[in-house]
Design a protein around this nucleic acid. Structure first.
Length: 882
RNA sequence: GGGAGCAUAGCUCAGCUGGUUCAGAGCAUCUGCCUUACAAGCAGAGGGUCCGCGGUUCGAACCCGUGUGCUCCCACCA
């Protein structure tokens, strides 16, 4: 019977679901353990980043479930306002429908249809991976009750004065025709031209008596905005221009006169030390404009074309206009030169369009106050970031410099802003129209005949920042059982890219609305890259298809492989090799089962209850468990996997099973059989969180079980004390066995050829005990027929030094004297050098005086051990020479 | 321009309080094995200027300074 992962995986996933093992409910007799999924975009399909992220969450939740927690993993999706709207608009376009020609209601109908059809594919895909989410709890950020929470929060924050409406410089995405937040602007290097333009003096135009400048040289990368120029700014201390303060110059082409103003922010050293002030299209300029109360001339339309205020090139796209204007400037002699430069251009995270800074009336959420507890509780460790060092500083910097959050978006797909306007433009903020009318009465003492709601919707993150609270209906009813039990949640697993977008804001919301942190730990995963270190992207085509990987290597194998190569916070340089290693590991485990299941038990065979094999393995197992648990507790998941791998492959398979397995054809005693089954069960438990499918399969293959007796809900092994001495004894013996095997290998002897060995009688208690305890093990695993303790060194033999023991293997006919001598001389040289360095230390008075006594003692022991060894080898060399 | 993280075997990374866990693991490579659980395997082996340079210390992969090189974050140089 061979292992067939595909069938096994779908079988057990269905079984777990059918038995409700993923479900969690408020259960006061247990401790809760809660994770909320970072809701993937409803439009999304599973990619490698999701694979990594959700595997980690599943490992955490499965482990806690087995440890007896009421483990609750809440799944769901995000409505992803911009991204989804873009997809729906594109879909409509294909059908020949223009968004502009349909009503909001019609658009919504199409959007919801689209969402029902394509949305949430990603959640189905997660099931393939084995994600043990409580699917009954699946939420969507735009479902009714979550929308209500968003509206409620908006109203509450508005009433607290933390949300306000105002005209500010915002980031405008001309493609999506909406604002985007500062965090959604990605600055990209680009090759641009810096144009130097002549701004002629408006007075004393003919050069002459006053020795004034005939023209001012201004540099700009955006010549299409000159029509919006309202001033030229220079540094107040710039001597070159002091005499010009207040004088006027002409904007090229349109010849509008603008004054010279001063501002500290102008860099005297840079360029000509002067800049054109275009308040409508640059934040710095806007500030200067405010200072001098300058006019704001917006030369751009919402779609990025030149507006009527631009006078020339009206209706042309800004980049077309730029080219044309440069041409005209050249022709009319305004252009001095154009230089190639690299600068950073802001682009929209979602559409990639070049962002235009623009003055616009928008809704903002004030951040300063909410930032305080958000920062404090991370710095004091109440909320822990993993890894801490890498992220705490940037987190701190961001929160200390946080700007108000522009939360309105000129889209339809999202939560509509609950502000209501009358014809005069007065407005109130209220949950619904009815309350709005009442408020108008109170506030303005009027009863408007028509009332219309704000056309804009809220930034997607304005709903996702409430996620850990809203999924438990914490806004609807703060006292509901689920919310009280599962909130605050425990761990959040997410990508560092959204640390500010989402994580920081969830913490703000947590403190603002519940007074509590929304989670205790934030595990920040790395970015999945290809093996050359490039980000995975569609355009590069370097991202493997997750399902092909699963088909090829099994979900267990992929899970194991990804995590093995992915320390917390480090990027994952993905290589299929890791999945292959995971598959091989699964196969190894499968073969354990094949071995054990082939054993024939003979009840008449008896064996000592305290056999060293059990004693050693139980101690080793406990030692490994405590290591693994320590790794998990510190969120070092890949280290935990490495420990698991070693425990299974090396300790259990290579050593324990080799000790325990009977000779071919021979039966096994029932005690060893039972013990081995028990160990294997412990191992399956440890493996389960990482490789849930194969472990569950073997759990049931191993023995008949009750329908509900599943590994997914079995008790996870607990940390127990272990006897370090036994473990060390074993390691010494394993070293000895390896050395004997090595001897055989270098001498070209067959493993079948039995050897006899002799040990010189200078053994300490530890060694003597180890040899006694493991006598049979050595004989079995190294194929040794006799182990003799000798008082006189056998000079006609090969000497092996292992862990301070002198082991002699008597010569036989194949003995190669020269090779033996060579090897010994080499070892002698090394030992003498080593002895020399130890002596240097011990002869150093300062060392002896300052070092800790135990360190000095250790050095002394090194010295005598080395001397003994040298002596032994020298004697052996002499003997060979005879 | 400011800040952070990293640099250890061919690759990916451990290395916690400076000292026998001190130079390690896995993968890859090489050698020998189709030894009835497993060739997706078994038994072995080789492989290092712990990025460079200074310093502190009896002692540095580890602490300090400095240089270099990657990676990331933040910032309104026209």
């Amino acid at each position: 019977k061979t292992y067939s992962p595909t069938d096994v995986e779908s079988k057990w996933y269905a079984y777990w679901q059918a038995n409700g093992f993923f479900k969690a409910k408020a259960n006061p007799s247990k401790k809760p353990y809660t994770i909320v999924i970072p809701p993937p975009n409803v439009t999304g399909v599973l990619h490698m980043g999701h694979m990594l992220n959700n595997t980690i969450q599943d490992i955490l939740i499965r482990r806690k479930r087995m440890q007896g927690f009421e483990a609750c993993w809440v799944p769901g999706t995000d409505h992803a306002s911009i991204a989804t709207e873009a997809k729906v608009v594109a879909m409509l376009k294909e059908k020949g429908i223009d968004k502009k020609n349909i009503s909001r209601e019609e658009f919504f109908k199409h959007a919801w249809e689209w969402k029902e059809k394509y949305g949430g594919i990603i959640l189905e895909q997660l099931k393939k991976l084995g994600a043990s989410c409580d699917w009954d709890r699946t939420r969507f950020t735009m479902e009714e009750s979550l929308s209500e929470a968003v509206i409620e929060v908006f109203v509450e924050l508005y009433n607290k004065g933390l949300i306000y409406r105002g005209a500010r410089m915002i980031n405008w995405d001309p493609q999506a025709q909406t604002t985007v937040s500062d965090e959604e602007v990605i600055y990209k290097e680009s090759q641009s031209k810096l144009h130097f333009l002549k701004y002629y003096a408006a007075e004393n135009n003919a050069s002459g008596s006053h020795a004034q400048l005939e023209y001012f040289t201004i540099a700009t990368t955006r010549p299409e905005t000159i029509m919006g120029d309202v001033a030229i700014a220079v540094h107040p201390d710039d001597k070159r221009y002091k005499h010009l303060h207040g004088k006027k110059f002409f904007v090229p082409i349109i010849k509008r006169a603008i004054p010279i103003v001063t501002d500290e922010h102008v860099d005297m050293e840079f360029g000509t030390g002067s800049l054109k002030v275009t308040p409508a299209h640059d934040l710095a300029d806007y500030k200067i404009g405010l200072k001098y109360n300058l006019e704001v001339i917006d030369v751009l339309n919402a779609d990025g074309t030149i507006s009527k205020s631009g006078i020339i090139y009206v209706g042309e796209d800004r980049f077309v206009a730029r080219k044309k204007i440069v041409k005209q400037l050249t022709e009319e002699g305004y252009l001095i030169e154009s230089k190639d430069i690299t600068n950073k251009v802001g682009t929209s995270e979602r559409t990639g369009a070049i962002i235009e800074p623009r003055i616009s009336t928008q809704w903002f959420c004030s951040m300063k106050e909410m930032a305080k507890p958000t920062l404090e509780n991370v710095l004091n460790g109440h909320i822990q970031l993993h890894p801490k060092d890498k992220f705490t500083n940037t987190y701190k910097y961001w929160l200390e410099n946080v700007q108000d959050w522009c939360i309105s978006r000129q889209l339809w797909w999202g939560h509509r802003i609950p502000a209501w306007y009358d014809e005069k433009g007065n407005f109130v903020v209220a949950k619904n129209k009815e309350q709005a009318l009442n408020l108008f009465n109170l506030k303005f003492n009027t009863q408007p005949s028509t009332l219309h709601q704000d056309e804009d919707v809220l930034d997607t993150w304005f709903s996702s920042w409430l996620w850990p609270i809203s999924v438990f209906d914490g806004f609807k009813d703060k006292n509901n059982a689920d919310f009280k039990y599962f909130y605050p949640t425990d761990d959040l697993v997410t990508a560092p890219e959204i640390l500010f977008f989402w994580v920081a804001r969830m913490i703000m919301a947590g403190y603002e609305f519940t007074g509590k942190a929304p989670f205790r730990n934030v595990y920040l995963t790395g970015i999945v890259r290809d093996k050359q270190g490039r980000k995975m992207s569609k355009s590069l085509g370097n991202s493997p298809d997750p399902f092909e990987l699963i088909d090829k290597y099994s979900a267990d194998g992929v899970r194991f492989g990804m995590l093995l190569a992915s320390p917390a916070g480090n990027d994952l340089l993905f290589d299929e090799k890791y999945c292959e290693q995971g598959r091989n590991f699964a196969n190894k485990i499968w073969n354990v089962y094949r071995l054990i299941s082939g054993w024939e038990v003979d009840k008449n065979l008896t064996i000592n209850q305290k056999d060293i094999r059990y004693e050693w393995f139980e101690n080793q197992l406990n030692k490994s468990i405590s290591e693994i648990e320590e790794h998990y507790d510190k969120y070092r998941i890949s280290d935990a996997l490495k420990s698991i791998y070693k425990l299974v492959w090396d300790d259990f398979c290579s050593w324990y099973l080799e000790m325990a397995k009977p000779d071919f054809g021979s039966p096994i005693d029932s005690l060893t059989y039972e013990k081995t089954i028990g160990y294997f069960e412990s191992i399956l438990k440890i493996i389960h969180p990482v490789m849930p499918f194969i472990s569950e399969e073997l759990w049931h293959e191993l023995k008949p079980r009750e329908p509900k007796d599943c590994l997914i809900v079995a008790d996870y092994p607990t940390i127990k004390n272990h006897n370090e001495s036994i473990v060390n004894q074993a390691n010494t013996i394993f070293e000895l066995i390896s050395q004997i095997r090595n001897y055989r290998s270098t001498k070209g002897l067959s493993p079948k050829e039995s050897l006899s060995i002799q040990l010189f009688d200078n053994l300490n208690d530890f060694q003597r005990q180890a040899l006694t305890n493991f006598d049979l093990i050595i004989k079995k695993l190294a194929n040794v027929n006799q182990i003799e303790i000798i008082k006189t060194k056998n000079e006609k033999s090969t000497l092996i030094l292992v862990a301070q023991m002198e082991v002699f293997i008597p010569m036989d006919d194949n003995f190669d004297i020269e090779a033996e001598q060579e090897a010994k001389i080499k070892e002698l040289e090394y030992l003498k050098g080593f002895l020399n360095s130890v002596n240097l230390k011990l002869n150093n008075e300062k060392f002896v005086a300052n070092a800790k006594p135990e360190v000095v003692a250790a050095e002394k022991k090194k010295k005598s051990d080395a001397e003994d060894k040298i002596d032994a080898i020298e004697k052996s060399l002499k003997a060979i020479a005879k």
